[in-house]
Amino acid sequence: MKELSLNILDIAKNSVKAGAKLCKIEIIEDEETLTLRISDDGCGMTEEFLKNVTDPFCTTRTTRAVGLGIPLLKLEAEQTGGSFKIESRHESKYPDSHGTVTQATFYKNHIDMTPLGDVISSVVTLIQGDPQMDFEFVHTLSGREIRLDTRELREVLGDEVPLDLPDVLVWIRGNLEEQYRDASL
């Protein structure tokens, strides 16, 4: 992947596929590191599946037997000297608290650091793709914070206006752009 924002888009799609109602995307930065955490309340993975999930030949896709999303993110984090972990609770065992948390930490100053790239486009793309789902996006850098929560937008829009309405998507993009400008992240 050319940008971490594309990994975000890719990994968050797993939450969509897991039937999550809410997917939370956090980017936590300090001077040295960038931590990406994607958590959801989807169906989760069984212990058996979880054990193999960083193996490229483990996949949920049915069109071919290779899945590169998680292995790629893990590789990108580890090539900066960072770390990767994934925790999951499957609904069969945890009927009330199932879901998955994927977390990757990067050392930003490492020469092999993948640039973060266009996060705004990834957030807008996720909302456009699954407007019935909720996304919470938080990006923090030394005290400054960018935030967007589709549950709050839904309250304003009511039931009759979908989040993927072009005007709403334009508003979301504009809102995030302004927040980034104001925070000068």
Binding site: L9, D10, T125
Partner: peptide, 20 residues
């Protein structure tokens, strides 16, 4: 198509171009 393969190959700007 927006799986890992599509995203890595540049599907995001293509999708944006269609939506916009």
């Amino acid at each position: 198509g927006m799986a890992t393969c599509g995203i890595a190959a540049g599907a995001r700007p293509v999708l944006s171009a269609f939506v916009e």
